[in-house]
Each structure stands twice: as C-alpha cells, then as structure tokens.
Design a protein around this nucleic acid. Structure first.
Lengths: 154, 154
DNA sequence: GGATAAATGGATAGTCAAATCCACTAACGG
DNA sequence: CCGTTAGTGGATTTGACTATCCATTTATCC
C-alpha cells in the first residue's frame, strides 16, 4: 500500500514526535530507533526537510526535529512527499472521452482509494501517538488505539 | 492501488462477463475493447487461464471465455493472481519480536488495507456488472452503481 | 582558527514490475 | 494434409524505486 520511502518517513516523523519539543535527533539516532538503513534514511529526511515537515540543524549537536506541531502534520502530507498515497481515479483509464462518471469497475476501485485517502488526510501524527501518554508507537509496546475504524479480524 | 497487470486483468474479465455465455473472444478482440497492448494482455490472459479464471481455446475461432459464472469470480481472486491487492501487515515491520499487537502507526495503515481487501473479497464480477442489464461496464456508458460504500466527493 | 560532528547534493549499483518480441504448438477449414 | 488462426512459453528491454557512497558545506567545541 505504501512505498518504502513513505514507510520510513512515517517512522521517522512519529519517532521525532515522541521526543521533547525542539530536541534534535541525528540521522544515526533515528536510524537506530526506526531500523532504517542510514544512507537511505538521510535521503528521506532531506526530502521531509525540503517539504517543510522537518527542521534540520547542521554541525555538532545538530540533527532533525519537527518543523511544526505533530497535530499539524497529516499522514497524507507525508505520503504525498514520496508519491505514495494511492491515487484517485479521476478520469476513465481507458481514455474514452465524454464520460462524466466512472464505470462500475473503476468506481469500485476509486471508492477504496477515496476511503483510505480520507483517513490519511484527517489523521495527524498527534492522533497516531494518542492522547494517552502511556501509548508508545513504533511497535515499542503492546498498546493499540482505535482510530475510528473497526479492525477486521480475518 | 492496483498494479497494471491487475487493472488489465479486471478489464478483460469484466468484458468477457458481458458476452453471451461461452462465446469466445480472442486476445485481439479483448485488446480492442479494453485498450490494453496486445502482447501484455496475452500474458495476463495466460495467467488468468492458469489460475482457472478463464478457459482458453486454440485455433481458428478460438479465444477466451470465463471458466465459471461471473458470480463466482471475486475481484480479490483476480488481484491475487498478480500479487496486487494491498498486503495486510501481519507483524511489526521493524522486526521487533514479542509484540502481539501492531503499534498505532501500522495499525492505522493495516486498517485501510483490511477495509479495501474486505470489499474486494466480497465483490464479484457479477456485482460489478450490476443486476440492471442497462448498466454497461468499462466506461462505456454513463451508468454509475452504488456498491454499498458512499462515494467521497472531494 | 583547527578539528570534529552532521546535514547536503550528486553520482552510482541493484532489483523488480511493465512491456515487448519471437519461436513453438494446437485447432480448425478447405 | 496444408495453411491460417490463435494461444503458449521463454528471453529480452526499459524504467522506476530501493539502496549506497563520496565529496562538500555548515555549525559547534576546544
């Protein structure tokens, strides 16, 4: 569903969001915590910085921190930075003109995309952390928060 | 959301489902109707045949037809034939052991996958065609059927 | 100011899906 | 039986994404 870059970026941002405000974390620190290969993570972090999601500080004691509060960063925003986030089907994929509606097949698929995208657009990093400070992200605990959608147990 | 092979396969199967039962359609015929490049479509059709979704007939007047009724073919079945269908997140992607639950981040993502997969598993090709015979698939009409989920108009 | 720490930018391999091509086999028609 | 039609199987090319490496710039500490 997500590409690797987006998965890595989400891990990094979620991790940074758990740190005290404005505390710097170097690429190496984040790599240890998120289990992402350092060279690739550096590239991902650079992209997030250019996008205005992170703030970078060079030199000794430098590193990365969130450029805004976790409640202002949506999951979709991060996915878009890496061309992840499944694309809506706007027009007939067969290239047939004059159709104002999608056919049933592509409508079905687009509905699934729309559902996922709506959730990603309205979920912030803050939401993922949860209001309860006991909950720890990145698989570092047993906590499981409900995010409004029922978990399908198949 | 879907890879090209799965998209092409769905188009082909939906098209075949609109034909009179057991009528053969050659790869060329299907290619014309679904706007899929012939060589690639041939490969897709071969896969569907091996999977038991289609029946192939060689020689003059030959071609492909559904191997079972459209109500017995699910969308998920076709996606699985091409490793499309977004994968559920079963275990912690960070490789941390001893965790019986996903963290909030991966839970959120997995919920979206689960929702889509549930719909694909319960929707058959027959459902896509719609009970109303007026409705034409593959963007060949203006019809739009509701498939149980609200359309998101953004 | 020199040494060290750390982000930046660009260039470079590896991998996999998308797409194409060609030689081969099977079925039907005259 | 011979030719045409059409599916089968394998080899190949292309491009995007994953991943890595190195030289450069910036900032801090002594």
């Amino acid at each position: 569903m997500l590409n690797q870059s987006a998965e890595y970026a989400l891990r990094a941002v979620v991790h940074l969001a758990t740190l005290p405000a404005d505390q710097q974390a170097s690429a190496g620190d984040i790599s240890d915590r998120t289990k992402v290969p350092i060279p690739y993570l550096q590239k991902v972090l650079r992209t997030l910085t250019r996008r205005g999601v992170l703030h970078a500080k060079r030199g000794m004691g430098g590193g990365f921190c969130l450029a805004k509060s976790s409640g202002e960063i949506t999951v979709l925003e991060i996915l878009n930075a890496f061309d992840s986030s499944p694309q809506r089907i706007e027009t007939c994929p067969l290239g047939i003109k004059g159709h104002t509606h999608l056919c049933p097949l592509h409508t079905l698929i687009d509905e699934q995309v729309a559902n996922a995208q709506r959730v990603f657009a309205t979920t912030t990093i803050h939401d993922i952390l949860g209001s309860d400070s006991e909950i720890r992200p990145l698989c570092d605990g047993l906590a499981r928060v409900s995010l409004g959608l029922p978990k399908d147990n198949r």
